[in-house]
Design a protein around this nucleic acid. Structure first.
Lengths: 162, 162
DNA sequence: ACGTGAAACTACGGCGGTGTGATGATGACG
DNA sequence: CGTCATCATCACACCGCCGTAGTTTCACGT
């Protein structure tokens, strides 16, 4: 199932919906819901009716896993939505590089401790800060991909760049 | 309305439900819901049927305002519940003194920046941290009490200890 | 002491968001 | 061209409220 190779021998990149859900530790229903409510759409191939297949990229999985982590931490999906909206608009590939700091509907990336203290001080009176170490999430994701039920196939290795 | 004095001239301590909600910036329905579902019960006088009155203490208001701040930051009520459960069990009067750090269902208090960095580092891989400066909340609350629609009355001043 | 009016709580139905489960539809693969 | 994995759709459940109508009390004036 979903070995990543198509009938013509070409390599299908990325991950099927089912596998994406398994790897990220979310239910398939959640994945489906998020795709249909525009939170995370599969960037390689979106669904176009029954029988078609979604194809998620490695980066998609990363986002899914970050979201899952935020949800587990007790953050509202609504808040996650706006933070991601902001992140996608204001940052390129750097989404996974350091500490993610979410304050209400906006978000920032922070590299080191000093910067963190700085943000914390500047945010005095602005409410609450949510911190997440993104590189940890990446590590967990990579582990999960290798421990996966389906053996790591060419597409997974390709997506990982290893 | 609700000037804090009873007919016999005695001073009723604390704040009515309506005033508590106004001061803390939450709706009366929220206050009611939280009281019914055991999140924050008025410690001076709980409701015992229609016509009775809830009486909230200054400390209650503090908790309400902290909760309101957490909700505004996009934290799920469910998560707030368990954090407060934990806080009430593990800490006495110190709830309002420094930085509140919530990680999943547990919580910690942190005094200075170094301690904060420490916690952040120790929590690597444990998910998300939520930070809140409690003293700021207290300041806001005090301001709100003085700016209140109803003039600060004896009970409010008494509760403030000023 | 007592009627009165308004404040405050209660009950109940409903709504939007976030899913879940079952079942049906359909493209993809062999 | 049949089988099967995957997606679509629908109905339903739960949480966290909101609005409103109903009920009860209590302070106050007489």
């Amino acid at each position: 199932m979903d070995d990543g190779t198509a009938s013509d021998g070409t390599v299908e990149e990325g991950f099927s919906g089912k596998r994406a859900a398994q790897i990220c530790g979310i239910t398939y229903r959640q994945l489906d819901y998020w795709a249909r409510t525009d939170l995370v759409r599969p960037s390689l191939a979106d669904a176009k009716g029954s029988g078609t297949r979604r194809r998620y990229s490695y980066r998609d999985l990363l986002e899914l896993k970050v979201i899952k982590t935020l949800l587990d931490a007790g953050i509202k999906l609504e808040s996650v939505r706006s933070a991601f909206h902001y992140l996608r608009e204001n940052l390129g590939e750097d989404i996974v590089s350091a500490q993610l700091v979410i304050s209400g509907t906006s978000a920032v990336l922070v590299r080191d401790g000093a910067e963190l203290i700085d943000v914390v001080n500047r945010t005095r009176g602005q409410g609450v800060l949510n911190l997440l170490a993104l590189d940890d999430v990446r590590e967990e994701l990579d582990d999960a991909i290798h421990l996966d039920p389906a053996p790591p196939d060419r597409s997974a290795r390709a997506a990982l760049g290893s």
